[in-house]
Design a protein around this nucleic acid. Structure first.
Lengths: 348, 348
DNA sequence: CGATTCTATGTATACGTATTCATCCTTGCA
DNA sequence: TGCAAGGATGAATACGTATACATAGAATCG
C-alpha cells in the first residue's frame, strides 16, 4: 500500500492504525494519518469484507409499489445507517422477479436479508434458510416458525379497531381486504371478525384485489351498489382506504356521515386533513429496528430450533372517519419524530 | 475451492465455467455444474469485485422524507436491477448526516453514486469529483457543469404550467416555493415568472419552508389571510400542493372555485380523485435510467472537460384544480405503466 | 509423418485487507 | 549490568476470484 511506504511503515501497521489505533505509537499514528490524508486514502470495505467474511451490508427485498413499503424502506435505511451498516435494496414489481433477485442477492455475501413480501411461498423460505444466509421475514405472519420474523400484531390491531367500531354501535361491518391470500390480510380479518362476533355484530369479507388506491376505488363501486350500506367499512390497508373514500364520494357516500371507516398501517397521509383516517399505526421504526437487528445477528442455531419471532403492537389513531360528533379536526401533526427515538447513533 | 476438487479440475477452470462457458469443454462444464449444484456453490461477488475493481453497485443518497423521493428510489432500483446492478441506498434525514454518509460511501468502491439532494453545496460536489468516484447529480440543476447531472426541465415545465394558467385568464398568480435556496425551486419560479410576465400577469413568490405537506398546510393560512386571493396558486411541489389544498379548505377556499392551483412532480396521488391536481409529471423512469447509465459509465474524461448533463422534458397533467367548467372527473388511472417502457431487461 | 495451429486446462499472481507470529527495542527491576 | 517483560512493528498468510502465461494434447495440413 502506498500509504504505508509514504509513512515509512508496513501495511500491517496502517491497518492497525485504522482498526485498533490504541496499539500503535502516537508518533507513528500521526505520520500515517498525515500520509492517508494527503493521498486521499480511505479503507477498502470490499477487501475488508473478503477477509472478514462479513460485508456489513443488509439486503431488503421489497415490493416496488405502495406507499407503505416506501415508508418502511426509509426506516430500514435509517436503522441500518445508524448502526454503521448499509442497505442494499431490491425492489421488485412482479412476484416472479423475486427468484431472479434472490439469486443475484446470493452473490453478495450479505450479513442478512430482510424479506418484505407477504406472498413469498413458505417452501421457498425454508429452502433459503438452508443457504446459511440470515434472513428475516417482515410482516409475513405465516413465516413465523420457519424463519425469524418481525410483524406488527395484525390480529390484535384489527381487533382494537373492531372494538372501537363496536363501541360506536356498529352492528353490520364490512371488511375489505387487499389480497385474501396474504397472511397479513387473513390475520387482520380474523381479529376483526372475532371481536365483532363477540360484540354481536356481523362482519362480511370483500376482497379489493390489491393493496392499492385503485383497488379501493374500484371496490367502492361494489359498495355503492349495495341495497343497504354497512354501518362501517374496515379496510385492510390505508392506501386502499384512501381509494375507497374517494370512490365512495363519487357515489355520494361519505365518512363518517353515511358509514364509518377504518384503515390499517398508519401512513403519513392518514393524518392529512384531506383524509384524517382512523387507522392502526404500525410502529415502523421499531419494526425496522427489530428486523435490522435480527438480520444482522445471524442465525447461529441449527435449523431444528424454532427461530425467534417478534410481534409489536400498533397504536390506534382516531380520525374523522369514525367521529360521529362534529369536533373540529386536529391540525396535521408533523411526520418526523413519530416514534423515532433518538437512539445511540453508533456513527462511523 | 472445493467445487474445483469435487469436479476434479482447477479453480481457474471453475471460474471460466461461470464467466466464459464457451471456452470450457462441454463434458468438463457439466461436471463442474453438477458439483456446484450439489455443493450449493454461488460465486462470491465480493471477491470478484476485489479482483475486477468494480462492484456492480451504484449508490444513491436520497432525502428520507417525501413521497417524491420514495418514488424516485423505486425507479432507481428498477433500472439498476434491470441492468444487473445493485442499489446501495443511503437515506438521510438531516442534511448534516450527508457528510458522514458520504464518508461511509467511499469505503465501498461503488461503480457510481447518485446524489439526489438539491441542497448539496457545489463546493462539496467539486471536491467529491476529485475522488474518482463517478457521481451524478439528480435534479440539482446548479450542479450541471460541475458534475454530470440529470434533471427534469424545471424551467420549461413551470413555464408550461404558467402558460396553461395564462390561457385560462389568470392575471394575478402566487408562486409558493418549497425552499427558496433549492436550485430546483429557483428554476421553477423563474420559468413561471418569465412566462406570466410576458403574458401580462403578475407572479409573486412565497416560501413554504419545506417540500412537505405540512409546509403547504401552514402556508395556506397565510393565503387565507390575504385581503384578496390570487387568481391562481402555483405550488413548487405536489406534496406541498396537497397540504395547501387541504389547508385552504379549512378557510373555505377550494380549487378550482375560488382559485386555480398547480403542482409540480406528478406524484401518483396527483391523479387520485381526492386531489386530481394539475401538475407537471416528471418522467421518473426516464430520469432514473439516465442517472443510472451516467453513474455506471464513469467519468473517464479529465476534470477540465464539461461533464454531460441531461435535461428531460416533463408532461402537463390537467386535473380538476384548473378546470373551470364542470366536466366529470376522469377515473383514476393505474399508476403502473406510466412512462415505464418495457425495456430490454438484461437479466442475470 | 512431422510441423503447426488450435483447444482445453493448469499454474501462478494480484486485488487490499486482517491477523498471527516473530522480532526488535525499550523499560523496569534485581 | 543483566535479564525479564512488555510495547511497537514487520513479515507472512489467507480470503475467493480473474486472468496472463505456460503447457499438453488434438487436429489440421503440407
Amino acid at each position: 500500500m502506498d500509504v504505508a511506504v509514504a509513512a515509512g511503515v508496513s501495511q500491517a501497521t496502517v491497518a492497525r492504525c485504522f482498526n485498533t489505533p490504541e496499539v500503535v505509537a502516537a508518533s507513528t499514528r500521526k505520520r500515517i494519518e498525515a500520509a492517508a490524508e494527503q493521498l486521499g486514502y480511505v479503507p477498502n470495505a470490499i477487501a475488508r469484507s473478503l477477509k472478514s467474511q462479513s460485508t456489513n451490508i443488509v439486503g431488503a427485498v421489497v415490493p416496488a409499489v405502495g406507499e407503505y413499503w416506501q415508508n418502511v424502506v426509509t426506516c430500514f435505511s435509517r436503522c441500518l445507517t445508524a448502526s454503521g451498516r448499509q442497505l442494499l435494496l431490491f425492489s421488485f414489481l412482479d412476484q416472479a422477479d423475486v427468484d431472479d433477485t434472490l439469486e443475484a442477492v446470493a452473490q453478495y455475501r450479505l450479513d442478512g436479508l430482510i424479506l418484505a413480501s407477504a406472498t413469498i411461498a413458505e417452501a421457498q423460505l425454508a429452502r433459503m434458510r438452508q443457504t446459511g444466509l440470515s434472513l428475516v421475514a417482515f410482516n409475513h405472519p405465516d413465516a413465523a416458525g420457519i424463519v425469524p420474523s418481525v410483524t406488527v400484531d395484525n390480529e390484535a390491531g384489527s381487533a382494537e379497531l373492531a372494538r372501537h367500531l363496536a363501541d360506536l354501535g356498529c352492528a353490520r361491518v364490512l371488511y375489505v381486504g387487499g389480497v385474501a391470500a396474504a397472511s397479513t390480510d387473513r390475520a387482520r380479518f380474523r381479529g376483526a371478525a372475532r371481536t365483532l362476533a363477540s360484540a354481536g355484530a356481523t362482519c362480511n369479507y370483500m376482497e379489493a384485489g390489491a393493496f392499492t388506491y385503485e383497488a379501493g376505488y374500484r371496490a367502492a363501486d361494489r359498495i355503492g351498489q349495495l341495497d343497504r350500506l354497512p354501518d362501517a367499512v374496515m379496510v385492510g390497508g390505508d392506501e386502499v382506504a384512501f381509494g375507497m373514500l374517494d370512490g365512495l364520494r363519487q357515489h355520494g357516500i361519505t365518512a363518517p356521515d353515511d358509514l364509518l371507516m377504518t384503515g390499517f398501517d398508519g401512513l403519513p397521509q392518514a393524518s392529512w386533513a384531506g383524509y384524517d383516517l382512523t387507522t392502526l399505526v404500525q410502529p415502523a421504526e421499531q419494526l425496522a429496528e427489530h428486523a435490522a437487528e435480527l438480520a444482522a445477528k445471524g442465525l447461529d442455531a441449527p435449523s431444528n430450533v424454532v427461530p425467534p419471532s417478534v410481534v409489536v403492537a400498533g397504536t390506534l389513531r382516531r380520525g374523522r372517519t369514525t367521529r360521529r360528533d362534529d369536533e373540529p379536526p386536529a391540525p396535521p401533526q408533523s411526520r418526523r419524530g413519530r416514534g423515532c427515538e433518538p437512539q445511540s447513533r453508533a456513527s462511523r
